[in-house]
Each structure stands twice: as C-alpha cells, then as structure tokens.
C-alpha cells in the first residue's frame, strides 16, 4: 500500500469516528439539559400551581440568564467548543449568539458597534421563524377554509 493511500484511509476513519463522537456528545448534553428543563418545569407546575406555559417561560428565563452570564464571564465559549450542538440547539445558543455579538462589538461604540451588530447571528433565526410562522398559519387557515 502506498503512503498516500494509507494516509487517506486513516484520515477517513478518523473523521468518521469524530462525527459519531461529536454527535453522541451533543446527544448527551442536549438530553441532559432537556431532562433538567422538564424536571424544573414539573416542580414549578406541581408545587406553585402555575400554568405549564408560564412555568416553561420561567425555566427558559433561568436558562437564558445563566447562558448570558457565563458568556459574559468568557466560560460559555469554551463550553460550546467542547459540547457543540448540545448547547447551540437549546435556547442557550440563541442567548449566547446575541450576548457574544454584543461583547465582540463593544469597542466599536454603542450605536454603530453593539446596536448595529446585536442580531448578526440570531437575526436569521427570527427572520426565518417569522416568515415560516406567518406563512404556515395563513396556509392552515386556507386549508381549513
């Protein structure tokens, strides 16, 4: 076997392993966050007699606050590079993208820096969510007649 072939083969195997490893890490971390979320909401609903949507809102608020504080302290970036999509897909990723944009552009001033750049990453989520939400709602009304 030639050296190049061997290197190519090793590289392919290595990449395959990494893909599975990353996906499994994301699965575990995302699942952990999800089950903690369920537990907290369940406690709030059953002990404080809240409606489920309000309890969900409170727990979401806790998650967002934690994510933003950790981003401000510079810890969340390291966590994201370690656990990747386990933290990006939950709402923490949304909060992190806004907070990190703000921190990054702080030196450019308050208007042209943080004001103009805060939705650099989260903007696409809001844009496509809104477009899809309104279109699907109108489609549903048309279908239902």
């Amino acid at each position: 076997m030639k050296k190049e072939e061997y290197l190519k083969l090793v590289k392919g195997k290595d990449k395959e392993k990494n893909i599975l490893k990353n996906a499994l890490i994301s699965f575990l971390i995302g699942g952990l966050l999800g089950s903690i979320f369920h537990l907290l909401t369940y406690i709030l609903v059953n002990t404080c007699n809240m409606s489920s949507s309000f309890a969900c809102g409170i727990v979401l608020f806790i998650y967002i606050t934690l994510a933003i504080i950790l981003t401000g302290m510079g810890i969340f970036d390291k966590l994201i590079s370690k656990y990747k999509f386990g933290l990006i897909i939950p709402i923490t990723g949304f909060a992190h993208s806004v907070a990190s944009c703000l921190l990054e552009y702080k030196r450019d001033g308050f208007i042209t820096g943080i004001g103009a750049n805060m939705f650099k990453l989260a903007g696409s989520v809001i844009l496509y969510g809104s477009v899809a939400g309104v279109s699907f709602a109108i489609l549903r009304v048309i279908i239902n007649g």
Binding site: I19, N22, A23, L24, I25, S26, F27, L28, I29, G30, G31, L32, L33, G34, S35, F37, H38, K84, F85, G86, I88, I89, P90
Partner: peptide, 15 residues
Amino acid sequence: SSFILVGLICFIASL
C-alpha cells in the same frame, strides 16, 4: 422521553 427527544434533535444537528 425529554432526554431522548432533545438529545435526538441535537444529535441530528451535529450530524
């Protein structure tokens, strides 16, 4: 089931 579902969504994203 919360663990499995949220984990699965993150798994797909990573893939």
